[in-house]
């Protein structure tokens, strides 16, 4: 346990130091990433104003709060991409990871956790700037702030499990671009990434209850933005834990069968 903790702390420290060296790259990425919620925000604020100031219970200020928090949640949701899995499996670099006496997923989780520290620090000025422009209607109570902290890390772990599962498909085939795109399309619709779930048709909302996606976007955002009771918050965090466990078990099973397919000798 102790050596695992040391590994995590060291990897996180190295990731922080590495990422701080490339601040311009981080800002390039963030500006590109922030464009997506700004588009949604502008479109839905325009629709809300055209509908008399509110649509689906959201005012332009509420949309601003939703999509502003979205930017932070999205940053937290960035994990080792399935395209990265594809690349390291296809190129043979994965051989090096397999030689280490530790599951490669630990490296991914620790490295991206370290990157989050840098990302959050660099996000703060951008978040403040966006707040000045869009004036979000954001009034969380104390337990929402604490709950939000845990919810974004829960979202990070759920998404890590999901995208690792997806990435492991590349052990079997490298023509996975369309599969990845299909997954991201599903995520866009069922997670609250495109619009708050309450604006989705009822059938989509019901289907989303049986999927993990909304626990990576909608719940963390709503935990800070929407009025939420403590009970509701704790129940949400509990469901996130459940999805993390399900994801972890699925990753273990998938890993067991897929790593046998790996045959690269290079790297």
């Amino acid at each position: 346990m102790r050596h695992m903790l040391d590994y995590y702390l060291t990897t996180i420290k190295i990731a922080i130091q590495t990422e701080f060296q490339y601040r311009v790259v981080q800002y390039f990425y963030m500006i590109g990433m922030i464009a997506e919620p700004v588009i949604y925000l502008v479109v839905w604020s325009t629709i809300a104003r055209a509908q008399g100031g509110m649509v689906g219970g959201y005012t332009p200020g509420a949309f601003a709060a939703y999509y502003l928090v979205w930017t932070l949640v999205r940053n937290m949701n960035i994990v080792f991409t399935p395209y990265g899995w594809e690349n390291r499996i296809r190129s043979g670099w994965f051989s090096m990871d397999l030689l280490r006496p530790i599951h490669p997923l630990n490296g991914d989780v620790a490295q991206f956790a370290g990157m989050k520290v840098v990302v959050i620090i660099l996000w703060i000025p951008l978040g403040l700037l966006l707040s000045l422009f869009f004036k979000p209607d954001l009034h969380p109570v104390w337990y929402q702030v604490i709950g939000f902290f845990f919810a974004i890390w829960g979202a990070y772990l759920i998404r890590t499990m999901l995208l690792s599962l997806l990435g492991m498909i590349t052990f079997f085939t490298t023509r996975v671009g369309a599969i990845f795109e299909l997954f991201f399309a599903f995520e866009l619709v069922f997670s609250g990434r495109l619009v708050p779930m309450s604006l989705m048709p009822p059938v989509v909302q019901q289907a989303a209850n049986y999927m993990p996606f909304q626990w990576t976007f909608f719940f963390p955002i709503e935990s800070l933005v929407a009025p939420m009771t403590l009970q509701h918050m704790l129940a949400g965090l509990g469901i996130q834990c459940l999805w993390i466990v399900i994801g972890w078990v699925a990753v273990k099973v998938m890993w067991h069968f897929s790593v046998r397919q790996f045959s690269a000798v290079g790297g």
Partner: peptide
């Protein structure tokens, strides 16, 4: 030198052209 994220930067902003 390291501006790899340029693709993400452009794709993110280009998405604004959908409207």
């Amino acid at each position: 030198v390291r501006v790899d994220e340029i693709v993400n930067l452009f794709q993110g902003i280009y998405a604004a052209g959908r409207w």
